[in-house]
Amino acid sequence: MSDNKKNSYDQHRSRRKFLKGVAAGAGLIALPGKDASASMWEEFFQKHFKELNKDELKAVINRLEAKYSGEFDKKVTVKTTLPIEGVRYGYALDLSRCIGCRRCVYACVKENNQSRDPQIHWIRVMQLDKEKGVDLSRAEHYYNPEQVPAKGHFYMPVQCQQCEKPPCTKVCPVQATWKEKDGIVVVDYNWCIGCRYCMAACPYGARHFNWGKPGLPKAEMNPVTHYLGNRPRPRGVVEKCTFCVQRTREQPGRYPACEEICPVGARKFGNLLDPESEIRYLIEHKRVFILKEELNTQPKFFYFYAT
């Protein structure tokens, strides 16, 4: 048996074993039921995404595209675009500009097919006191004044920090989540068993669980999707920001939806390996910090003060 095959075999075995172990207690995992279709069983027995060969991958994608297209009454595409060579994505957010308008939150929901009800938001904007600085214990998530910015406050959006050393991927018992070459931490929703260990491990609250069947109106569904990104999720899996993998891995690369919508230009995105990028410029020239530096997660999401 080749190493590759053996790995895949082990992964399979460990996932099944784990499934058996928790299924009794949790009851949240959806094993195909009595009336399950052939495609549901195919999905259940699908190999790990990284182990699929070209033909198998094509079959999986065809199956998913047909399924989603039927479900949402439109032509849905599921891309599997690979990381671009020589690219490591970085994101930076200017705290001296952000006004807390939440345009990013809803642009993200729309682009990434988050559940409307029950509500899932990959981006959270916190209102903080200018006098107290970045003190997360004083963060207010539910602020809602007539106008922002509110006097005496500043705003701090938080989403997945795309850690270089992600604590979330390490605890996944079935390797359903991992860091890609370009630095994006992804989840395979077909592989995720919903144990939520990753959510407990994430210090940023950036992972979200589909407690119910995602409520995604057909008309609002974004049909341009990526397997590891914004394709529709089933109930019982974890999801998170992927720097809009379905947009940013295009050639030429589009900006993430949150960066594009930002009316104040507080959000900056680019390639950390490109010395000409604005992200490199600001890391070298501005006051920059990362969230919870002491945990050594090494986020590739930076906060900075332009002034």
């Binding site: 006004i99 807390g100 308008c101 939440r102 345009r103 939150v105 809803y106 029950p118 509500q119 938001h121 959270r124 998530h141 539910y142 602020y143 809602n144 004044p145 007539e146 106008q147 922002v148 910015p149 407690w211 009316p263 104040v264």
Partner: peptide, 18 residues
Amino acid sequence: KFKSLKPLPPPVRPDAAR
């Protein structure tokens, strides 16, 4: 001076969501 904006709605509180 950059004009202030009306914020989009806050998230629903977790007790209401779950």
